[in-house]
Design a protein around this nucleic acid. Structure first.
Lengths: 257, 257
DNA sequence: GCGCCGAATGGCACTCAGTGCTGCCGAATG
DNA sequence: CATTCGGCAGCACTGAGTGCCATTCGGCGC
């Protein structure tokens, strides 16, 4: 792109610098990052549908064919790091110990996914705003989330193998974990990345863990109950009241909200 | 297209017959059904990607433009009745009574969706085999399922409004209901539509209802309380006990199970 | 019976996503 | 220096999806 064949000595030097950068950055293709930056710039200022792949590659200064070497589709450029994150997550689940609570392990895996978002708050918020408006991106995000959910469910199915209704439990818990994670994550994204996302997700996941009863409620130990109270609660309810109403009373009496 | 202006009398008769069919079938465009039939025939014998929209309209004997008048995309023809079913489901939720258990209502809505599958077992099984192999159809199905889940969650958010963690509970329960429904549904589809799908889904949904403690367990209302007791119940629970354990105590104390 | 109107349809042309192929260039080999 | 190999640009092509317009058909008023 820049002036070439002007000074061979200088070119040799430039090559050395480039190589040094390569070693330093370690297998990071600059073309990929240029495409991501160009795509987001155009998507944000002009809209997703109003931007063609040709516009992106023109702004990034690369060939059109290169775009599809790095991303499977026009939507894929919006979720550039999910492939690696999904691999990390499955590896994390595969490395789990046998005596660990499976639900807790899956919750920790979800926390791993959360970290990918919190590492780049600005980027995550921009992407959230895009996916909220563009139906095509929402659909693509669904397929991404679905792969996480299937990874969770697959792990749980293995851990629940032999148990009655093992696959049912696995599927339901995986879906609940994903839903809780997304609920907290989206609250954080709607707040422009302000606030403690980790705490919000912990809180949401604790609700799931309590609902399925397969855990010691993680945060209860640490955040817990600083006054040391582990006392009893008395609830009085009319027998004819609908059960779900009673449960609501119980929950508020127990201080879970 | 067919021979015209040959015998006006005969043409008049043909018109009458056509009109009679229209009145009989009542607002059912035959073009739509012809497109669905042609699409499935080609998808099954040749594969989804190997079939173009031109192939479908050629076999159905209609213009290419008409395909996209009836279906939003090539994938859409595989899920022809979901739009109506989704409308029915949201209407069913909107018509719910205020004093009914919200979780139970959502489970009933899921049973409504199941009915759409069980009404045409052969069709549902064919579609299942297609979506299992074709990634594009899986993605499309995800977006369809997502709309049901959002309908469920929206209803629950309304019912849980004001409660602590209302949206979290709504999202998680909606996801759990959908996951349980799909788990049972897919078992039935894998078995080629043999067996009792209703019973399987009932069983799966009961698991969800128990996990979230928001139900009177199916038959409690009708089984009633013939002794006329409408007294009070006192429950004592340790504050640190997992919620599901507490709920179990409540349920047994209230005599519902 | 006649003409008009609106809805449904078919046909055409166009944009753009995604893919296969070819040639090119630079870098690592001998 | 010659060769090979991997990444990239450019080109051409298929096919999905859309906008536009002409046509047709059933219905309706005159």
């Amino acid at each position: 792109m820049s002036s070439s064949s002007a000074a061979p000595r200088r070119n040799d030097k430039a090559e050395k610098v480039e190589k040094a950068e390569k070693v330093e950055k370690a297998e990071k293709p600059p073309i990929r990052d240029a495409l991501i930056a160009a795509a987001f710039q155009l998507f944000l200022e002009r809209g997703f549908e109003q931007t063609t792949v040709d516009d992106i590659v023109a702004l990034a200064g690369v060939g059109r064919r290169s775009f599809f070497r790095y991303f499977p589709s026009k939507e894929g450029v919006v979720f550039p790091d999910h492939e690696r994150c999904l691999a990390d997550t499955t590896a994390f689940l595969a490395a789990g110990e046998e005596d660990e609570d499976p639900v807790r392990r899956v919750c920790d895996a979800a926390r791993l996914v959360l970290r990918m978002y919190t590492e780049n708050p600005a980027f995550s918020v921009q992407r959230y705003r895009l996916t909220k408006k563009v139906p095509g991106l929402r659909a693509y995000e669904l397929s991404v989330v679905w792969r996480y959910e299937r990874a969770f469910a697959g792990y749980l199915r293995g851990r629940f193998a032999g148990l009655p209704d093992g696959t049912l439990r696995a599927d339901v818990i995986a879906a609940a974990v994903v839903a809780a994670h997304n609920n907290a994550l989206r609250s954080w994204l709607r707040a422009d990345g302000e606030g403690d996302a980790e705490a919000a997700v912990d809180r949401a996941l604790r609700y799931v863990q309590e609902a399925f009863g397969g855990t010691d409620a993680s945060g209860a130990a640490e955040g817990g109950r600083p006054d040391g109270r582990d006392d009893v609660v008395v609830v009085v309810s009319r027998r004819a009241a609908p059960l779900w109403r009673v449960v609501q009373e119980i929950e508020s009496a127990l201080g879970r909200d």
